[in-house]
Write a protein that binds this DNA or RNA. Structure first.
Length: 558
RNA sequence: CUGAACGUAGCUCAGCUUGGUAGAGUGCUCGGUUCGGGACCGAGAGGCCGAGAGUUCAAAUCUCUUCGUUCAGACCA
């Protein structure tokens, strides 16, 4: 690409409405442009990067024997009605009607259509296994788009779907995809960690996420350095770490705690360790009030609660719901409640703890499990700093991640819903076992930029950089320099070295800054010594500038 | 969806409190001087002050409505 005659621009100021380093840099460097909240144009440079990511993934998918297809984005709503996900996705699914008033959706993910496509192929166990995949634009009406390309309403995803006759087959197919994902992300050049995750709306047996390590990540990852344990916080098991085991149980006692509404205030007022308190959370679970009792220094984990109760929605209870529970907010305790109560496993191990008395201005001390009645117990809190690994008992570590890929063992959920069956060896009808596997391309691009930038701009890993090299002509009015630079450009193209020629009539400083902003891995400066056949060669990653001949440069770039 | 902030030149913003026909920087165009890290001088082009309604002799400025954007939360592959 010769810049003078290309669609190419950079901005000098930070974008006002970008809230992430990657979003800002991609906008500033002219890779993408926002059209509305969560919807971006892919400009020439941006599309080149996305295509490179796509090519790498395609190569590894094809190597597993998967076949590429292309499903529509515009889909009759009935497919999602059939699988029950019209409800599952709720307001996140884009709905529209055609002129005949037929309900349509813009596909948020494509399990249904792939299952439907598989029906045409699958008659008997002999027809499996196989795997289909596509690169497709997905639409999700996110409640809040943010962080540039990280959370958007329209994005391209690679999604793959495997079909097997039984669970053992699924395990094999899953492992193939899993390995292909590792190879893809390694080649792209992203720093990632694989974690166990919640199956969410996808349902199924197992979900693992490929998380790009980044401070602005929306997911919290919990892992252990001593063993292989690694999990998304939303499903991370909590090993009850606090026990005051053998102390003798005392008798429960009411004490006045005037104006102490939060557990911190109570602990401070009574001079208690907050780890020996139990707090109550009054929640709205599918429209019904439920009170949860957890250790004072814990947070309630909503996905664990939903799973435990088999519920779909959770939020704080409003005044009307609270009034039905007979609870006294701020002093809510386990006594005399008129609703379901759930106790965290950790509380089961506590003795002589402090909790609300359910009476304005009072808490109880020396409470014990025997004093409480509850309906259910389970692991319903978030792991936190200081917790121990549930596998090996070493201290857990925490980091933030951006989910760039996800693999699911779906099992038979969709084949049951979509009536996808085959005849086995005994000519008995059986459900097909499915897996689904996704990678967000734009999100991957954003995550790479989050991980690879400095104060001057983007630093692309070589494998997904839009171009490998950029040739700068220092003095455009110098015909000799122009001629030499153009010859170099032609030579590179001949050799298949993708490069940019900055032949704009700009001052050197502008060209240096733009080259750094857009993050091209190698920069060649055609300047003073060009006539002698000497050029400056600089890697975007390193500060050193080296003088080289054309042959030496070509050797480096080949 | 709830709460808050913002919307003025291509971009980043000032002006609004105290109403009087629109400003800066940067980018852009032309001329000149420059030419190895976002140069300098001069001359220009560029705005229905997000949209609508109201108050007023007069509204970017005050009031109401609406749309958009962003933040916090909720939500979320």
């Amino acid at each position: 690409m010769k810049l003078k005659d290309a669609y190419f621009y950079t901005l000098r100021e930070d974008a006002r409405d970008e809230d992430s380093a990657s979003g800002n840099l991609l906008v500033k460097a002219g890779y993408i442009k926002k059209t509305s909240a969560g919807v971006y144009m892919m400009l020439p440079l941006g599309l080149r990067v996305q295509n490179k990511i796509e090519d790498i993934i395609r190569k590894h998918m094809n190597a597993t024997g998967a076949q590429e297809v292309k499903m529509p984005a515009l889909i009759a709503a009935e497919y999602y009605e059939e699988s029950g996900r019209m409800k599952g996705f709720g307001p996140s699914i884009f709905k529209l009607k055609d002129r005949n008033d037929k309900d349509m959706v813009l596909g948020p993910t494509h399990e249904e259509l792939f299952a439907y496509a598989a029906k045409s192929m699958i008659r008997s166990y002999k027809n499996m296994p196989f795997n289909l995949y596509q690169f497709q634009t997905k639409y999700r009406d996110e409640p809040r788009a943010r962080f540039g390309l990280v959370r958007v309403k329209e994005f391209v995803m690679k999604d793959a779907y495997s079909f097997d006759k039984d669970e053992a087959g699924l395990d094999v197919s899953y492992q193939k995809m899993f390995d292909a994902y590792k190879k893809s992300f390694d080649e792209i050049g992203i720093d990632y960690r694989i974690v166990r995750a919640d199956t969410g709306v996808m349902g199924g047996l197992l979900s693992e996420e490929f998380q790009a390590i980044a401070p602005l990540g929306e997911d919290t990852l919990v892992y252990c350095d001593s063993c292989s344990y690694s999990s998304n916080l939303e499903v991370g098991k909590v090993l009850p770490a606090y026990e005051n085991g053998n102390v003798e149980m005392k008798d429960i006692e009411e004490v006045a705690t005037p104006n102490c509404r939060t557990i911190e205030e109570v602990a401070k007022y009574l001079k208690l360790d907050i780890r020996n308190t139990v707090k109550a959370m009054i929640m709205n679970v599918d429209g019904e009030p439920v009170v949860f009792f957890i250790k004072g220094d814990r947070e309630l984990n909503e996905s664990k609660v939903l799973k435990l109760l088999g519920a779909t929605e959770i939020g704080f209870a409003d005044d009307e719901l609270i009034s039905r529970t007979n609870a006294v907010p701020g002093f809510c305790g386990p006594l005399g409640l008129h609703c379901r109560t759930v106790v965290d496993d950790e509380v089961l191990h506590m003795k002589n703890f402090c909790c609300g008395a359910n009476k304005e201005g009072y808490h109880c001390i020396n409470a014990n499990l025997k004093d409480i009645s509850y309906d259910l117990s389970g692991d319903i809190v978030n792991a936190k700093e200081g917790d121990l690994c549930p596998i090996c008992g070493q201290p857990l570590k925490f980091t933030k991640g951006i989910e760039v890929g996800n693999t699911f063992k779906l099992g038979t959920k969709y084949s049951k819903a979509m009536d996808l069956q085959y005849a086995d060896e005994q000519n008995q009808l059986q459900d097909v076992w499915m897996g689904s596997y996704g990678i967000g391309l734009g999100r991957t691009m954003a995550a790479v930029v989050e991980q690879n930038h400095d104060e001057k701009g983007i630093i692309w890993p070589e494998n997904i950089a839009p171009y490998k090299a950029i040739i700068l002509i220092m003095i455009t009015k110098d015909e000799e320099q122009c001629r030499i630079a153009n010859e170099m450009y032609d030579k590179f193209n001949e050799l298949g070295i993708e490069c940019i020629l900055d032949d704009r009539d700009e001052r050197p400083g502008v060209k240096f800054n733009d080259a750094e902003l857009i993050g091209i891995p190698y920069r060649i400066t055609v300047g003073k010594k060009a006539a002698e056949g000497i050029f400056e060669f600089k890697s975007r990653k390193d500060p050193e500038v080296q003088e080289m001949t054309l042959d030496q440069i070509i050797e480096k770039l080949k």
